[in-house]
Design a protein around this nucleic acid. Sequence first.
DNA 1: GTCCATGCAAAAGGTTTGCACAATC
DNA 2: GATTGTGCAAACCTTTTGCATGGAC
Lengths: 147, 147
Amino acid sequence: MEGKLKDHGYRATTGRKAILDVLTNTKKHLSAEDIYLKAHSDYLSIGLASVYRTLEILVNVGIVHKFNFRDRIARYELIKETNGKGSHHHLICTVCHKIIDYEDFVDEELALLKQTEKHLSKKYNFKIINHMTQYFGLCEECIKKEE
Amino acid sequence: MEGKLKDHGYRATTGRKAILDVLTNTKKHLSAEDIYLKAHSDYLSIGLASVYRTLEILVNVGIVHKFNFRDRIARYELIKETNGKGSHHHLICTVCHKIIDYEDFVDEELALLKQTEKHLSKKYNFKIINHMTQYFGLCEECIKKEE
DNA sequence: GTCCATGCAAAAGGTTTGCACAATC
DNA sequence: GATTGTGCAAACCTTTTGCATGGAC
């Protein structure tokens, strides 16, 4: 993964490695500040600005995916290359903003999405790199609270 | 549509009607500032803060959908009630940030999404209100530029 | 007439940028 | 040793909020 940085002419500095480490070893949907705080344990002097700069590079290089849910806080996660169904399927509660990742039923969904991808690529001459599906609605607790 | 405002206890003011008008009569993916600028032609004295306040209400009431693409600018569009396949399928170029809406192939896609929706609702006790699919990649022009 | 909505300006808060210093190759 | 990356603080820009005034019911 550090190799990918060097391939693109970027240096593999201690700070960047620390950030990659954080992304590798934690749950998803981390904000820049989350990453900044966690990276401190490995590498005390890192600054928030560098975290942002590194994340931008990682997104451009294709290692990291940047999300925007409903709020203005960007969230980041590693792109898993093992299969296409890693991570980008979410249930988002519009009341409490909780995010549930689901991994079920993704196989069948994926089959169709792949097919659609093929159609779309051809029709719009668009090179698809990845995708994201979001369902908006009410989570269990917020349904109860509404009653 | 104004009725829906009143049902929820909100007043149907001139400014709010102007905003609904803008949303009804323009293309999608408008930012708050876009709406603010366009609303000025109908209703000169409207302020940006009121646009934000109105948009928040419209989202809560379920008339408008709020999007976040890659940047920090929120975008808004009317929710079409006629069918489920109105609007929330996008191809997003990660280089030039162009957004292409596609309407093709949505029928089949929708069938599966609906099915997945049912499964997910049951499993997570989540009440799904709407969904969005985004494909990230490179648009035709940006592919050419890369060469 | 009461209460809600508005406009303006100021504040908030996530992200970006300028600059001198430090680290990498 | 040259160039790229970093930390800090200040700037930026979208969105939110406070408050006195205006408009809807």
